[in-house]
Nucleic acid binder design. Structure first.
Lengths: 212, 212
DNA sequence: TAGATTGTTAATCGATTAACAATC
DNA sequence: TAGATTGTTAATCGATTAACAATC
């Protein structure tokens, strides 16, 4: 998929465009101008046009953008129908929630396995799926063509798991651990979720920004 | 706290500095140069010096930085000892996990109340705290000087809750909903966690970046 | 003192905004 | 056709990197 390079700032805005266009579509709106979308999203019209034109000319002069077709186009760009075979590792509190909470199908993934190293959890069901033993991860990935792993495990476990996963064909990670996957494996796709960092950023803001 | 303006890019790196310095401190290291820290963190030495000098000259020419004291300084900047009175709203799957998973004390917060609109949950305990009825939020905030709210509720609930919270003295939100708080209340501090957006970004990366 | 490394200024790079000709 | 709005180029702004004098 050797498309042209698109900056990270743009890519991070795509899901938000997709979400907003979904709302507008569901509200029955048919067309929108970059100006109106900008106002609704709190962006500039210029930025929206620049962003979209990274991927093609989806609008029409004098008219604006057709909401339904733009929605579909962005869906295609994001790959919402990809159905990448995905496993989740670490069925503790967080892992359990992440397994239940997310609508994987609608976001391009197909969650087909949940693993935990604790043998005592094996067989317990989450969302109709049994928790499997971590010992079986490698075989499972190879047998099922797993492309993405969700890591809901501590640093050390992540560090230990990643080499095996990569060599078993995993090319993308949704990483809730603090282990820095990109450092060791720059070729794989990684999206980090650092809840603690996010919360500390809030603390800074409350402490400094607000004019109490 | 009218300190000088520090850009968001810098602030978002602070928790990571704090974390790394914590590791180094625990490993018994005493000093580190910007160069070595940069190598370990995958940043540039220049950036680290620029970042830190937003807050003061913590280093010493010819020597580098003292790890323990830099760790403490960054902790102070982030406000890890602030203990902001905090409540969590929405004790469903996600809310429950967020209540349990995070070490609030170490990150500047003091979680003192959990609320859910479902009366049937009232009284149930999470981490030694009873789930309270959402009807009591306003009084609770005013009585206890609540400064921060964690929103683990859907869009509509957030939209409805935020005005009351703000008027009751809440000045910071850790927002897991898609409701855009900043739009309506630009004066409050908001840190959004959009798990779905993060996952879709990963999908894009797996689809495009990787050279399969 | 000589060597190392900071703090800070200047240069570069990238992202956002402004402007406008093209065109529906 | 006239008005609206895009796609795209140029200008601006901000963040990162490079360079180096200050100094421990």
């Amino acid at each position: 998929m050797g498309s042209k390079y698109v900056s990270n700032s743009v890519i991070k805005r795509l899901p938000r465009y997709y979400r907003f266009l979904g709302y507008l579509k569901d509200a029955g709106m048919v067309r929108i101008s970059s100006r109106e979308l900008a106002d609704r999203m709190g962006l500039s019209a210029s930025q929206i046009r620049q962003d979209l034109n990274n991927f093609g000319g989806f609008g029409q002069q004098g008219y604006g953008y057709n909401i339904e077709s733009l929605y579909k186009e962005i869906g295609k760009i994001l790959g919402v129908d990809s159905g990448f075979k995905t496993i989740l590792i670490g069925a503790g509190n967080l892992g359990h929630t992440i397994a239940l909470q997310i609508d994987y199908q609608k976001r391009g993934f197909d969650l087909i396995g949940i693993f935990d190293k604790k043998e005592s959890l094996s067989g317990q069901m989450i969302n109709g799926m049994p928790i499997r033993s971590s010992r079986d991860i490698e075989d499972f990935c190879k047998d099922n063509g797993v492309k993405v792993a969700i890591l809901c495990v501590p640093y050390e476990a992540a560090e230990e798991l990643v080499p095996t996963l990569v060599s078993s064909g995993v090319i993308g990670f949704w990483n809730f651990s603090h282990y820095n996957i990109k450092e060791e494996y720059p070729q794989v796709a990684v999206e980090n979720v650092h809840l603690n960092d996010s919360l500390m950023t809030l603390c800074y803001q409350v402490l400094h920004d607000t004019n109490l």
